[in-house]
Design a protein around this nucleic acid. Structure first.
Lengths: 222, 222
DNA sequence: ACCTGAACACCGTTCAAGT
DNA sequence: ACCTGAACACCGTTCAAGT
């Protein structure tokens, strides 16, 4: 019997954090629609009713997951340039959605209600204020950027099916599903992507840089 | 007994369309989260089980609602300029969200699976192809624009609470909720909006025109 | 062809009872 | 303080039975 195992956390101790982490794991592995109180309890080796000792209900559970997931978004250090800072947080959010496919939907609904959401907004707005935007303009820039960043994720998932298939497969399927001759423009685009896959990163950067250009023109020095 | 009433439709006849329209009315009035099969059936004066004669299940019900709601988006006539066409459909989508607050979430998930969604995509892509964009570029432009249009709706609803209160009230609440001194940038922006309300239309147009500018630069003649 | 009644398998949640 | 067992009010859905 070792005095102290390398792994110092006692796995048997159940607390709010372990409940939330396990819930995230369930959502990652089997999808957030399979996350029920009974399923989560089973994973933790307890009864569903016991969960209410650690979270006040399912809404609190989802709020806690949102809080943790927002905290995973990497906010670049304050000394990097504002434009690079906006680019990096956008990229970080997109990486987050790769790890947690359910995150975008949760963040949409609950961003502003979580402590980590306030910290996130404050850091972003602080970066924009520091380079000379007025509070009102900074707020607008923040709104426009995040509309695009989070909106892109939703549209993107429409394009490439949830299945592992890449965008050429999806384009092929869409192309096949179109009644011949009915939607010529859509068929042409689907055919183009079936031949050459859509570059999601480049597609995202295209819109992002346009918005950053516009914000840059609002800076006092520019 | 009149040979034929002005109102030719017999209100008693239940069919898929009337089920879908009633479901939309429930979602409009009480929110989509209150739309249950039992509630809908009650509105129609039948039992929940009878709904399955007209829709194959709740998923089919939501798909049908999405199809109808996408069809409400006004696609401008083909002879107007591409830029005006993009502007008009964006405005039309935003008006749609005023009528049907639940529409954005449904459209996100189901746009591409509905006949009206295919028609919508074909019309938009057709407009972009006609002014000389390649299929691949047109697809990217479509994705970028719709990311912004639908993303803005989600971020906007975060800003202005679902309650009737306008954005100054929300800003005031946010400002009050912030621990004093903790989030100075966020507090400054909230204070600015508490004094002067955020202009949602102008804020939306700011980002939209930036994206349209960028797309315009990709045109062969530009 | 359309509707009903009753049931089924599932939810989130509550609460008295245990330890 | 934390867990269990059993119940409650609700879901979506199925199906035999009616007309």
């Amino acid at each position: 019997m070792p005095r102290r195992a390398h792994n110092d956390e006692r796995r048997e101790t159940l607390n709010r954090d372990r409940v939330l982490r396990t819930a995230m794991a369930v959502a990652d592995e089997r999808g957030i629609e399979t996350l029920t109180m009974r399923e989560l309890a089973g994973r933790l080796g307890i009864e569903a009713a016991s969960l209410y000792n650690h979270v006040s209900g399912k809404d609190d559970l989802l709020a806690g997951m949102a809080d943790l997931v927002i905290a995973e978004i990497d906010l670049p250090s304050e000394d990097s340039g504002w434009r690079e800072a906006m680019r990096r947080r956008a990229m970080s959010a997109r990486e987050l959605f790769e790890r947690h496919g359910w995150a975008a939907a949760l963040i949409d609904t609950r961003m502003q209600a979580q402590p980590s959401g306030l910290a996130y907004a404050d850091r972003v707005l602080g970066t924009l204020l520091r380079v000379g935007l007025s509070p009102a303009v900074a707020g607008n820039a923040f709104l426009v950027l995040d509309s695009y960043i989070y909106g892109y994720e939703r549209q993107r998932t429409i394009l490439s099916r949830d299945d592992g298939g890449d965008s050429t497969d999806t384009a092929q399927e869409v192309g096949d599903a179109i009644p011949p001759g009915a939607f010529p423009a859509l068929a042409a685009v689907a055919a183009a992507y079936a031949k050459q896959p859509f570059d999601e990163d480049a597609g995202f950067a295209f819109g992002l840089e346009l918005l950053l250009d516009g914000i840059e023109r609002l800076l006092p020095t520019g």
